[in-house]
Design a protein around this nucleic acid. Structure first.
Lengths: 180, 180
DNA sequence: TCACCCTATATCTGAATTGATATAGTTTTC
DNA sequence: GAAAACTATATCAATTCAGATATAGGGTGA
């Protein structure tokens, strides 16, 4: 729905090739939005058809040819329009937390193991994000927000694992089936 | 990738119809995982073909016929196998934070407005989640985790809006274009 | 020189997901 | 008693997304 807008955002300050956009997405926008090449190229083509970007083909002087995309005035307007639209609340589709929701299915020791492992996974992801070169300006701010949120999740998982009653004691009998 | 597993998780403690699964998804698993009916019915069919659930058709004694799905022993094994698999770190694809990443494109007053509006959106979502009947056991825990994370995001957004320098002063000149 | 990796383009398949629509009986409300 | 809302099933089209593959030149190291 909004990958094209993310691309417009990346093109805001300087033109770029599809390849570099993919790089920048993965390195800078990283946890906030991800996309594969196979999404980016078609998206750029659509942006072009819509008149939001212009394409300039750089002659193949040393190396393969490069397609340079540049945002147009219409494209800038479109990005602003999108930014001004109200954003959907974070839906946080999260595999890890979802697994925790069904922890009932596992015996005690495995419950603990799952929580410990997930906490480790998050901690590693946070470390990885901190290591990569921090982007500039608001991109950096937004990334910090994402990291902040991961920290909160990590603390919460650790907390749940710490409260032995919650993990030790199975939730008072199976839930009463919702009859209708 | 794992909607089928979420359904198995919901079927763990009691059999249910597709409709009730959709209801329970929306009411209980709510922010962690969402799915439309048009995903649930095909997913149930696949689960059935795989032998993870059994279907019993309830005769149309008062009302339309109901298809009751019950998890099998194989299904329980499969759920446990999935739970034991390491979970991917939260990728938190987030429209709101992504917009903040491109705030550079907006003039000052609109930046503030965007942040304020997004904070309000998150606050409302949190209130909505708190109001709906809290599910039982680990489902409740996981939902709390999700809410906790949203609170963290809300606080972060508020913090960013509060630091007037960050929002008031545009990030020291446009980012130097990554030349190569 | 050969193998391998990086830059750079792009397509294809298949699965996941969304949103709209269809059908039909039941219950509730005015 | 008619209209509206709810229960319950299901399909369709369109889009998004992930993963694999194809092509091709350049640079690096054994």
């Amino acid at each position: 729905m909004s990958l094209p807008h993310v691309l417009l955002g990346l093109l805001w300050s300087s033109p770029s090739t599809g390849y570099d956009l993919a790089r920048s997405l993965e390195e800078d926008v990283a946890p906030l939005w991800r996309a594969e090449m196979s999404q980016i190229y078609p998206a750029l083509a659509r942006l072009r058809r819509a008149g939001f970007v212009l394409l300039r083909v750089l002659g193949p002087r040393r190396g393969p040819r490069r397609n340079l995309y540049r945002i147009t005035a219409t494209g800038r307007r479109e990005l602003k329009r999108w930014l001004a639209e109200p954003a959907a609340p974070p839906s946080s589709k999260d595999e890890g937390l979802t697994k925790i929701a069904f922890l009932e299915a596992l015996p005690l020791p495995e419950r603990r193991a799952l929580l410990a492992r997930y906490e480790r996974t998050i901690a590693e992801e946070i470390r990885r994000l901190r290591e990569t070169a921090p982007p500039h300006g608001f991109l950096r701010e937004a990334r910090r927000g994402a990291i902040d949120r991961m920290e909160a999740t990590r603390r919460w998982v650790r907390g749940l694992a710490g409260e032995s009653p919650a993990v030790a004691a199975p939730p008072a009998a199976a839930a009463p089936p919702k009859k209708r």
